[in-house]
């Protein structure tokens, strides 16, 4: 059963991710008073990328991107297969490290700065993701995604702080303003395209697919907070995603120190308070 879910993820996540990307661009356009591209635009872009010439700065950069794609897909598959959530997080980090290495490999100024920033973002995001997993464990007594998803406890009630913290870094992970520091989906930014500057054609296509996998995985993570009622969960995911788009269109990009400091502060305050509260409640229940 779990393998079927994992396979379904591997097959369907790119489709869903691409659709979400298309809808995202459409909504963004509407928010800016434009018509926007077709819903399927993301797939056209992908198709185009695979029709282009293969251009590299150094051959090794493609290898890192391939690893990035494989491990993002793997971590998502583990997640949807109901695996151990900590292991999923570690695989997810591994994947991102590969993306960063790919950016470093080209020895290009823009992708280099992008890589450094991507690492800072990684550093900013990691604690709350781990703490969220720990919080889920404290409530459901299991690290397995399958068990967490199957539990009847409304996690969001017990983990509001961790959820808020997770939302904060979700903006970073979805590469949305104000935290689109290392690369962004928008056309212009000061680092050209940050980590993806030196990737083109099919390689860039692979990164795009990996992004889609990633987006679905992250939304899956959001789902866990609401998993006691699938309907509410889906509605919550939609609201949260639209909210992220709104944030994206209303905020200017911040500097990396602010991104790092604020996300750590949010993690420290909300995360620790939430965990401490859980701990105390747990003590009473015993």
């Amino acid at each position: 059963m779990s393998i079927i879910y994992a396979l379904l993820f591997l097959l369907l996540a790119p489709v869903a991710g691409g659709l979400i990307a298309g809808i995202d661009r459409r909504i963004t356009a509407r928010m800016q008073g434009r018509v926007g591209p077709p819903i399927l635009q993301a797939f056209y872009d992908l198709g185009k990328l695979f029709e282009k010439e293969k251009v590299v700065v150094t051959n090794s950069q493609n290898f890192y991107v391939l690893c990035y794609l494989v491990f993002i897909a793997l971590s998502g598959a583990l997640f949807f297969g109901g695996g151990d959530i900590l292991l999923v997080i570690f695989a997810f980090t591994l994947a991102h490290v590969f993306l960063v290495l790919g950016a470093y490999a080209s020895n290009s100024p823009y992708s280099h700065v992008g890589a450094e920033r991507e690492l800072i973002q990684l550093m900013a995001c990691e604690p709350i993701i781990i703490l969220a997993a720990v919080g889920m464990y404290m409530v459901t007594k299991s690290f397995y995604v399958a068990d967490i998803a199957a539990s009847n406890i409304p996690l969001i009630v017990f983990l509001p702080g961790l959820f808020a913290g997770f939302l904060y870094i979700l903006t970073m992970k979805l590469r949305k303003s104000p935290f689109d520091l290392s690369t962004s989906h928008h056309a212009h930014q000061e680092l050209v395209k940050g980590v993806t500057t030196e990737f083109s054609g099919p390689t860039l296509g692979c990164i795009e697919i990996a992004h889609w996998y990633e987006a679905i995985f992250l939304l899956g993570f959001v789902y866990l907070f609401f998993s006691w009622s699938p309907v509410i969960a889906v509605i919550a995911i939609i609201i949260i995603y639209v909210f992220e788009i709104l944030i994206d269109n209303t905020f200017a990009r911040v500097k990396w120190p602010l991104a790092l400091k604020s996300s750590w502060l949010v993690t420290a305050v909300l995360g620790i308070l939430n965990l401490a509260a859980l701990y105390i409640i747990g003590g009473f229940l015993k």
Binding site: R25, A29, Q32, G33, R34, V35, G36, P37, P38, Q41, Y44, D45, K48, K52, V55, A187, H188, Q189, V192, K193, T196, T197, E198, F199, S200, L204
Partner: peptide, 21 residues
């Protein structure tokens, strides 16, 4: 701009030759 909105045709203004067509 919203007036002409070339993104309707999937056109994006990238700042990067590696991504451009």
């Amino acid at each position: 701009t919203p007036m002409y909105d070339v993104e309707r045709f999937g056109i994006i203004n990238t700042g990067n030759p590696k991504h451009a067509d």
